[in-house]
């Protein structure tokens, strides 16, 4: 075990874990941040997505000791008690079915919009393609991203 300091959603935490422990388990089990979830542990589905340095990052394959920059999780994207426009769009479009994948959908979409505030339909499809939903809410997610893009602008 070794002591690792992490900055998450504006707060600094120190944890004592094996350095190679995937960040996902530290966030969920040590820091109680359960927005990111285990889906595959292989970097293939996106359920565990957090944002580090503006990049949608799959925390299930990210060693905790490798993280140097601030981590943003789903719990950290609302500002001043106001939902992020994507979260609001998700509610307005009533996107989720079971909702289990939606952490990954929202966080991947956020990184996408942060980098490209006005994505085309093709860019949305491409940018989101690796983030899976087994309730197949893709059509509604894409509508919500377009809705949020108007607000973010």
């Amino acid at each position: 075990m070794s002591t690792i300091t992490l900055k998450v959603n504006g707060a600094t935490h120190t944890v004592d874990v094996e350095p190679l422990t995937p960040l996902l388990y530290v966030l969920r089990n040590d820091l109680g941040l359960q927005g990111p979830r285990f889906g595959c542990g292989l970097g293939q589905c996106g359920a565990c997505t957090v944002i580090i340095n503006g990049v949608a990052t799959r925390s299930c394959i990210t060693p905790t000791s490798a993280v140097k920059d601030e981590i943003t999780t789903l719990e950290g994207i609302a500002k001043d008690g106001k939902l992020h426009p994507l979260q609001q769009a998700w509610i307005d479009e009533q996107v989720p079915q079971c909702g289990f994948c939606q952490n990954g959908q929202i966080m991947t979409a956020k990184a996408l919009l942060d980098r490209n505030p006005h994505p085309t339909d093709a860019q949305i499809r491409q940018g989101m393609a690796g983030t899976l939903c087994r309730c197949m809410t893709y059509y509604r997610i894409q509508a919500a991203i377009k809705r949020a893009a108007q607000v973010v602008a």
Partner: peptide, 8 residues
Amino acid sequence: DIPAKVDG
């Protein structure tokens, strides 16, 4: 159930 599923 949706708000809690999108705000974490």
